[in-house]
Design a protein around this nucleic acid. Structure first.
Lengths: 147, 147
DNA sequence: ATTTATGCAAAACTTTTGCATGGGA
DNA sequence: TCCCATGCAAAAGTTTTGCATAAAT
């Protein structure tokens, strides 16, 4: 399952062991195409392999975040962050602030800005997250309609 | 203090009362130019007016987030989110993933993409957050140097 | 005068440790 | 075989409620 995803390569290459906990968390993340809360990851992992402990799930989410595989964001105002998968170091989406539905998109046209910032700030940039906030068509109608 | 910031206008116009808790939290956020953790907000507010309770601070942070005045992000991997002030609905920064230092910038050139997405998705977009991740000059040297 | 928002303190959760043990390489 | 990573369970924190009271408008 998700045999040799680039994320697994990243883990190996960084010298980390391919453990059940890590592979299972990755499987869950990829099955959700990212956009999953820590609570949901916890639940799904337990469903797949109850022998995996909570602590390992959190340790894995931290590790993946450090490696740039995922990135935590606040989508619902709940207690728990939502993790998005970073493809090639970046991720872009539009979120409806009312119904929380989201739409991912690929082309962000930020290459020039990235190079520009690298030069200006003398930094090496490895990725980015771009989130747009707004109202989807359905929620626009709903908020326009009277009670 | 921060007499009639646009954020105060927003509060009024949305029909919310201008309470001590709300004004103090806003003062703290603006004094930090955004980029402040919930724990730090809590501490600063208590320093300014100990009569303001924790719950009100959290309620205020939630309200401001709903109104698009601030946006929670995960900058340090700690328990608590870091809030950034949204100016005119958007915010852009570059973070060094090692030392966590950040650099804000204004021009993102995303106007065209915004309009594009509004048409394509039939959404009304009100703002965005753009975060770049990378290594600052100092941390590049530090990681290149042997122990 | 109304009604929204607050403060308090306890409750509810999420995330983190410490340590002995198991499982990758 | 060696050492990293895990599981467990308790600890540490952060955030949220419920309700009587204060204070904006």
């Amino acid at each position: 399952m998700t045999a040799d995803s680039p994320h697994i390569q990243r883990l190996k290459q960084a010298g980390y062991r391919l453990t059940q906990a890590r592979l299972t968390v990755l499987e869950v993340l990829e099955s959700e195409h990212g956009h999953i809360t820590s609570a949901a990851v916890l639940g799904k992992v337990e469903g797949i392999n109850p022998a995996i402990g909570r602590a390992s799930v959190f340790r894995t989410l931290d590790l993946f975040t450090q490696l740039g595989i995922i990135r935590p964001t606040y989508i619902d105002t709940s207690l728990t962050p939502t993790y998005v998968l970073m493809h090639g170091g970046h991720h872009h989406h539009v979120i409806c602030t009312v119904c929380k539905r989201f739409y991912e998109f690929d082309d962000c046209g930020l290459e020039a800005l990235t190079r520009n910032l690298e030069e200006t700030l003398d930094m090496r940039i490895s990725g980015h997250l771009l989130e747009f906030y707004g109202l989807c068509a359905a929620c626009q109608k709903r908020s326009a309609a009277p009670a």
